[in-house]
Simulated scan of single mutants.
Amino acid sequence: MGEQDLTARIAMVTLDCAEVAPSADFWSTFLGWEVAASTDDYAMLTPPGGGPALGLGRVEDHQPPAWPDEGGRKQFHLDLAVDDLDAAAARATSLGARLADPQPGETWRVLIDPAGHPFCLTDAKSWG
């Protein structure tokens, strides 16, 4: 078996949430991704042109992570490259996200999605 046969690729990242529909609505609209499958317990969003999907899974008694993370509950977050930080933050808040407090500086915006997950917006030019 060649080395290439032993590699793995990320097919999907799944976020836990208390309610699937509001999270699916927010992320599909904000990212411009299609809701490929949706039930009360699970949704899968797919990007245009393929690539890893975003899953949303209902978890009973879900406890969202904290920002800032002082208790060790935040395991990871999404970093999203955008052309205009202020415009993207305004769009996200109009869709149901909220700005986190505190903010880490001028080159990032930390927001909290409707299910309580922190995510970051950053200038796309910084990513090459």
Results as ranks from 00 to 15, higher is better:
1 M>L: 14
86 D>R: 14
76 F>H: 12
118 P>R: 00
97 A>K: 04
54 L>G: 00
16 D>N: 12
29 T>C: 10
95 L>I: 03
80 L>R: 09
2 G>E: 14
41 D>M: 09
92 A>L: 08
38 S>R: 10
94 S>I: 06
11 A>L: 10
117 H>F: 02
95 L>P: 02
95 L>A: 04
65 P>V: 04
20 V>P: 01
74 K>H: 06
120 C>R: 03
80 L>E: 02
105 G>N: 12
115 A>P: 02
31 L>R: 06
42 Y>C: 03
26 F>R: 11
117 H>K: 05
16 D>I: 03
119 F>H: 01
58 R>E: 04
11 A>F: 08
61 D>A: 13
100 A>T: 02
50 G>A: 06
97 A>W: 05
51 G>M: 12
81 A>N: 09
53 A>Q: 07
20 V>I: 11
1 M>T: 14
78 L>Q: 07
86 D>K: 14
88 A>C: 08
32 G>E: 11
113 D>V: 02
44 M>L: 15
121 L>N: 01
61 D>Q: 13
113 D>H: 04
115 A>I: 07
112 I>T: 00
3 E>Q: 12
5 D>M: 13
12 M>F: 05
90 A>C: 00
70 E>N: 12
113 D>S: 08
52 P>N: 09
113 D>K: 04
46 T>A: 11
117 H>V: 00
15 L>R: 02
37 A>S: 08
121 L>S: 01
6 L>F: 14
81 A>D: 10
93 T>P: 00
114 P>K: 14
83 D>E: 14
10 I>N: 06
31 L>A: 13
60 E>T: 13
111 L>M: 04
74 K>W: 06
3 E>T: 08
3 E>N: 10
64 P>K: 09
79 D>E: 13
84 D>S: 08
49 G>R: 09
20 V>M: 08
101 D>T: 15
90 A>L: 11
66 A>E: 06
90 A>E: 15
71 G>C: 05
10 I>H: 05
10 I>G: 03
47 P>E: 04
46 T>S: 10
56 L>A: 00
38 S>I: 11
42 Y>H: 14
60 E>Y: 05
29 T>K: 10
73 R>W: 04
6 L>Q: 12
49 G>D: 09
89 A>R: 07
57 G>D: 01
32 G>T: 11
38 S>Y: 03
106 E>S: 13
61 D>M: 07
56 L>T: 01
32 G>P: 09
120 C>P: 05
106 E>P: 05
35 V>N: 03
60 E>D: 14
29 T>S: 13
90 A>F: 03
10 I>A: 12
103 Q>K: 09
6 L>M: 15
17 C>I: 10
25 D>H: 15
68 P>R: 02
114 P>L: 12
14 T>R: 09
